[in-house]
Nucleic acid binder design. Structure first.
Length: 613
RNA sequence: GCCACCUUAGCUCAGUUGGUUAGAGCGGCUGUUUUGUAAACAGUAGGUCGUCGGUUCGAAUCCGACAGGUGGCUCCA
């Protein structure tokens, strides 16, 4: 961290204390949790009993904070023996601080993942608890804290309180729900203003807003939450992305398969999912006494295609792909536009491989992911999702170690810039997850490559080896786009709806200058030529001014707009208007109709046009 | 599911401390206009103010429940 970053960090952390000071002044009985620095700001978790705090209270809290800043109280560091600190917490009724101190005393650390180490006083490794913990005092407010802070409250920078949210104490939903007060903070009012303006800009490219404006998808209360419907325009986007994904997969040797959208529960009892997520399976009976469910994933289904006949080592790798929709009963508060839905479509694939084929297959599917994201201009951020020491995982630890070693080696071979994330694995195996970011900086998992030794075991999959004995294959799962709904949410925000021509729902829009017979006949002719080349073209022959029709085309972010009138009829040539982000501005000259349409068709076919975003 | 907030016409929004027939712009429709690269003009239709219940002489406005949504938390095969 640079000095400047250190300073900003200290400012934000100091503001968390100043906010806590203000909250304690306004609501003296309030219990404090923790108050760390986060991206762009800070928060503090508080428990104010029955009297909850709402955003309407922010004005008052901010006013109190300004007073404290004006007082320019110095931040004084002090140390206490841990037992004295516990006594302090008890006396002041700070039960959450007391719990933290007890953990510190007993274990030398606190385990909850959400607890920022910087908040916890002096941490020592392993056995042997801490002796002293540090405190910071400003004015009449003292808090357990490792620091550092700015010198005094007057130097805390520019801030704004943003939100109040619920947060479980120590990130555990069985614990009390506290209120988390979020603020953003910067060194100067100017930078703060810039940040707030950036948030306003980000709102404009929110995929839910653009989905409405560009007529891509709809959410209907009657259909139900988390069940998006796609309009003709949105469906073009979906289908073009799927087509590209399936082309890449076919090149990699994958064959399409198909599985029904419902299944007997029994399938998921064998796979282990049923016991793992019992609350997630809403079941319904169909005629017989059997219970059926909508499929929440594909792998167990595909195992039954593999298992349908004897397999030989010569058959492997056996590669199946299926772009299909599945259904998951997400909790209501977890739904989010297209990013988190109840009906999601994956460009899924499963390869059944011998152990000596694992690395090659993983490299192959990673290559597909890289190709796709390169063409779309999306940066890859890679997590290796591994297991941790918990008992959330099936199978022997030794099997996991083998799988994780292979995955990390592949990541190194492919020169991926990755981070290892313990505890993020699926219960059946470790994953390579591709993470992309939405307009507001929230991270979403899209592509995934997974290695699975567990399901072949549970479904007792086998092949006859060269040695005449039966062997167990491994499974390589992958999705390039991941959930297409989620992928679209991120991609819409990334492009702000300015899709490259090969994806654009409407590639060319023709506008007539007037409604005279000659003009209309000419325009119809151009439409037919464009359609013959497979282009998605529309004709706007409305009785409106040319300016108005241009505007409508711009608003819909159509790549190519062409005005047709007397001049074009005379010359047989057009001068296209090209969406400003596109890198083909040299096409904005006069072209014959045929040349113009042909060059768009070429551009679409090669999928090479990247928007210059 | 949990915490806070939001829900008025197809869309974006206005609606003063509860007080007559709830407004605007865009969009739609009809007519006039026949338009040359980001919004022609006029008229007109469209709302049991998310739903249900309550308080009140009177509710878009106050209270409650439910539904949907937003920001987080938790979860995410």
């Amino acid at each position: 961290m640079s000095d400047q970053q250190d300073n900003l960090h200290a400012m934000r952390h100091s503001l968390a204390h100043i906010m806590a000071t203000a909250v304690v002044r306004l609501w003296p009985g309030v219990k404090l949790g923790i108050g760390p620095v986060v991206e762009n700001g800070f928060y503090y978790d508080i428990d104010n009993g029955e009297t909850t705090i709402s955003e309407d209270d922010f004005e008052k809290i901010e006013a109190e904070m300004q007073k404290i800043i004006k007082d320019n109280q110095s931040f004084e560091r002090s140390e206490k023996p841990v037992d004295m600190a516990i006594a302090w917490a008890q006396e002041s009724g700070q039960a959450y601080k007391e719990e933290l101190l007890n953990d510190l005393k007993r274990a030398g650390t606190t385990v909850a993942k959400d607890l920022d180490a910087e908040e916890l006083g002096t941490i020592t490794e392993g056995e042997g608890a801490v002796e002293n913990v540090s405190f910071y005092t400003n004015g009449d407010f003292t808090d357990l804290c490792r620091g550092p802070h700015v010198e005094s409250t007057g130097k805390a920078g520019a801030f704004k309180l943003m939100r109040v949210a619920g947060a479980y104490w120590r990130g555990n939903e069985n614990n009390a729900q506290m209120q988390r007060l979020y603020g953003v903070a910067f060194e100067s009012p100017k930078e703060l203003r810039k940040h707030l303006e950036m948030l306003e800009e980000a709102k404009k490219r929110d995929h839910r807003k653009l989905g409405q404006e560009l007529d891509l998808f709809v959410l209907s209360d009657l259909v139900g939450p988390g069940l998006p419907l796609f309009t003709p325009r949105g469906t073009v986007l979906r289908n073009e992305l799927i087509k590209f994904s399936e082309e890449l997969q076919r090149e990699g040797g994958y064959e399409a398969v198909w599985a029904p959208h419902m299944t007997r529960n029994e399938l998921y009892k064998v796979s282990g999912h049923f016991d793992k997520y019992p609350e997630r399976f809403d079941v319904s009976s169909v005629e017989s006494s059997d219970e059926f469910m909508m499929k929440p994933m594909n792998c167990p289904h595909v195992t039954q295609i593999y298992a349908s006949r004897p397999r030989s080592y010569r058959d492997l790798p056996l590669r199946y792909m299926e772009t299909t929709t599945m259904y998951r009963d997400e909790k209501s508060g977890e739904l989010h536009g297209l990013s988190r839905v109840r009906s999601l479509t994956q460009d899924d694939s499963h390869a059944f491989v011998r152990h000596d084929q694992i690395a090659d297959e993983m490299r192959s599917v990673l290559g597909m992911v890289k190709d796709m994201y390169a063409v779309l201009g999306l940066p890859l951020s890679v997590d290796l999702s591994f297991r941790d020491d918990s008992d959330n995982y099936f199978g022997d630890v030794s099997v996991w170690e083998e799988a994780q070693t292979v995955i990390e080696q592949v990541a190194k071979d492919e020169e991926l810039d990755y981070r290892v994330e313990p505890g993020e694995a699926a219960f059946y195996g470790p994953k390579i997850d591709i993470i992309v970011t939405d307009a507001l900086g929230r991270k979403w998992q899209c592509a995934t490559v997974q290695l699975d030794f567990i399901q072949p075991e549970r479904f007792e999959l086998e092949y006859a080896g060269e040695d005449g004995n039966m062997h167990r294959p491994a499974m390589v799962h992958k999705a390039i786009l991941g959930s297409i709904e989620r992928f679209l949410s991120v991609y819409i925000e990334h492009t702000a709806g300015k899709f490259p021509p090969w994806l654009a729902p409407e590639q060319v829009r023709l506008l007539t200058v007037n409604q005279e017979d000659a003009t209309v006949a000419f325009a119809d002719g151009v439409v037919q030529k464009a359609k013959d080349l497979g282009l998605r073209v529309t004709l706007d022959n409305a009785n409106e001014s040319v300016g108005k029709k241009i505007r409508n085309s711009e608003v819909m972010k159509i790549p190519y707009t062409v005005v047709l009138g007397e001049k074009e009829i005379q010359l047989g040539k057009v001068t296209p208007r090209i969406r400003k982000d596109m890198q083909v501005q040299d096409m904005a000259n006069e072209h014959t109709v045929e040349n113009f349409l042909q060059s768009i068709a070429n551009e679409v076919k090669s999928r090479t046009t990247k928007s210059s975003l």
